[in-house]
């Protein structure tokens, strides 16, 4: 057992955790933030993407202990009260989801992609989302959503 001190969506949490608990399990089970999904559990699908110190990571491939002292943002932490984040709004407007299972990870990956890169081409967006798999294969509208959000976020 180890002591974990972590800031998640702006709120500090201090917990005793098992050394081998994954960050995604800590987020979902200890903090009950179930917006972060577990799709494949083999580091491939990206449904579990969160931001750790501003960097997008697959939270199923990181121990919670590794995130000790870090600031974590999950899908629950990106809206401003009732106002959706521009990326969420764009996924809504462009119908960038079908079943919605991959959406939290897609949105978190896409936010980092847009924040760190200017003038993204369609190809850049497709390559930038390589770590996120949509089993409904709804990629066209996801790309459109990211383009829409990018134009708003970078205006």
């Amino acid at each position: 057992m180890a002591q974990l001190s972590i800031i998640v969506n702006g709120q500090r949490h201090v917990n005793e955790i098992a050394d081998n608990i994954l960050l995604v399990d800590y987020i979902r089970e200890t903090l009950a933030l179930t917006g972060t999904h577990i799709g494949c559990d083999t580091s491939q699908c990206g449904a579990c993407v969160v931001h750790v110190n501003g960097i997008s990571v697959k939270s199923c491939t990181m121990l919670a202990a590794q995130a000790d002292g870090a600031e974590v943002t999950t899908i629950e932490g990106i809206s401003d009260g009732e106002n959706l984040h521009p990326m969420q709004e764009a996924f809504h407007e462009q119908h960038g989801l079908q079943c919605g299972f991959c959406t939290p990870g897609m949105v978190m990956s896409a936010i980092e992609l847009v924040e760190k890169n200017k003038d993204l081409s369609e190809q850049d967006i497709r390559e930038g989302l390589e770590g996120n798999i949509c089993r409904c294969t709804g990629y066209h509208n996801i790309v459109k959503a990211v383009q829409t959000a990018a134009s708003k976020m970078q205006r």
Partner: peptide, 9 residues
């Protein structure tokens, strides 16, 4: 290498 999240870690 890999995807963006792999490259980040």
């Amino acid at each position: 290498i890999g995807d963006r999240q792999v490259r980040n870690c």
